[in-house]
Design a protein around this nucleic acid. Sequence first.
DNA 1: CTGAAAGCGCTTACAG
DNA 2: CTGAAAGCGCTTACAG
Lengths: 355, 355
Amino acid sequence: MPATIDDVARLAGVSTATVSRALRGLPNVAPATRDRVARAANLLDYVPDPAASALAAGRTNVIGVVVPTIGRWSHARILEVVSDIATTAGLDVLPVMLASPAARDFFLTSHPFRRRVDGLVVAEVPLDVTDVARLAEGRPVATIGLELDDVDTVLADEQAGVAAATRHLLDLGHTDITFIGDTDSTATLVGPRRRREGFESVLAAAGHPTSGDRVVETQPTATGGAAAMTLLLEQPRPPTAVITASDEMALGAMEVARARGLSIPGDLSVVGLDDQPIAQYVGLTTVARDVTRMATVAADWVVAAVAAMETPGEGVAAVPARHRMVRTSLVVRRSTGPPAMVVDDRDGDSRGDLD
Amino acid sequence: MPATIDDVARLAGVSTATVSRALRGLPNVAPATRDRVARAANLLDYVPDPAASALAAGRTNVIGVVVPTIGRWSHARILEVVSDIATTAGLDVLPVMLASPAARDFFLTSHPFRRRVDGLVVAEVPLDVTDVARLAEGRPVATIGLELDDVDTVLADEQAGVAAATRHLLDLGHTDITFIGDTDSTATLVGPRRRREGFESVLAAAGHPTSGDRVVETQPTATGGAAAMTLLLEQPRPPTAVITASDEMALGAMEVARARGLSIPGDLSVVGLDDQPIAQYVGLTTVARDVTRMATVAADWVVAAVAAMETPGEGVAAVPARHRMVRTSLVVRRSTGPPAMVVDDRDGDSRGDLD
DNA sequence: CTGAAAGCGCTTACAG
DNA sequence: CTGAAAGCGCTTACAG
């Protein structure tokens, strides 16, 4: 049986209250006493029982992290960063993966975090204010990728990033560009919509049509990207460039193109999103999001709020919500280049491309 | 304030003991009573406090998952699978990432899991029996990728997989093959050694020398693979094929080769390890490990042992440890092919290659 | 600066 | 089948 606080108190010759104070570094403990307690605890290999602490203090020292899955690099990275920061602050992490809408619904109605966490980070899961409030139940919460007025949020400026990518392709001479976006857009999960807007605004400004047939939507996975590219290549006039909503999609699209005998970037330019480590090693041009920074900001907020909290659950101070926008940047590698020469006007198709 | 068991008891007109039994589906509760309790709990949105349960029952309903990082796909996948299985069994997961030796040492001496988890899964972290015992402190534990006599272990047959890859390259006509392994091999973390043995045994059987200069060791990341490939390409006589210890390494190696103007597989064949989803989309020939199966087996063992446990910490029944070997398979894609024709004997180099 | 004591919200023999 | 009561191992006013 592991040692308890009583064992330490007995060995140090003090009360359990003093042991508790001494070990947690609380004020009003004589240096000599603190020392004696520390030595006793050390001798006994004493580790406080987190359950007992949680029950007595009303705080769990755990923060919840909600992500869609960890199959996508950015989600795994968010979990990793939050976990690092939490650990440094002496907190544990409770990861929750909500891949399916069913999982989401069940999760929302089961009060999963009640009495389980002191605060939480919610990343890229399509939830509205009501959902987030239901999860948080008054505890500090920060979201990543969600736009919610009354909640702390961290967003990447993906609109600007995709706009830069679109300009890059136009500058290279492309006129047939398709955006392969992801489907999970909701009012609050703004990334998908913002990316699309970045794409369409640049095309419009350049005098290109921005009709729906320049946008395809699918899952943000390699499989999704491959499926979308397959569709596009069946069109009479496939695009010479695609911008995708994730590096994974970009890789899927590239593979399908290659399998069809197209060369990249000769026959098809491809742009990803995230700049995960692998992107560099496959030469992928991509819109870099600083996922590490986003996760760091969100985690720091939550950790600070939890630390500042007297008793969790009694509500967070009603300060105005913070909204942080993290810059994106276009990283040009070898998956984009000028389109192949167009030798003729093709079959009289007269869509209003730039000339 | 959330409802407590007392609120439910009052509303249902029974004692808290009965509420506790009814809600946990224990026997010896009258159906009508069970119903009444369920309705009361539902009405009050009652969720038991896990800390109070843990303290009273002596079990936490949490299982720990130790992985090196989640930057590598296989590690993230293991965490995801264990998490899924735990959730289904009504358990939470406590993830711990031990990237550095320093983190490992600190972690080992701080009794991190004491009173925190009911069981644990340890994956691919170089720990010996003593370390694992110190973490488990008598609780059920299963390891992935570690060979420990008295502990449940799941291993992939990577020796056979790499051997198959080596044979594949020999069959294609390669004679200069280098193995790019990872460095973290220890007596217990057997993957690195087994892979190397798979490589060397096939070369030896084919009458090739297996001297050290056919093996390079580095980090199992894209960066590591790139660094190793850079070194190899500086040699007077670079290999025509490399086998790596992870898909990430393979991608790094491929990129360096391409940057040097080499074509793949024309000038260089590359084999990875894992078959993560992206491998398919970059056309990587790779030794597939069924990571999902490995994680499932380990998680099932631990979850079952935890469920069977009366009071955690009172020691696991001394049954013989289970050792499961999961098959690997070679997936041939377009990163491997016959070597380019050798037009001359080069500069009199007389290493004993097959002719 | 320190201690005695109540209490956090459950579970579990024990008795009936 | 059910309840009263002890107890899990801490923290925290409160009193000194």
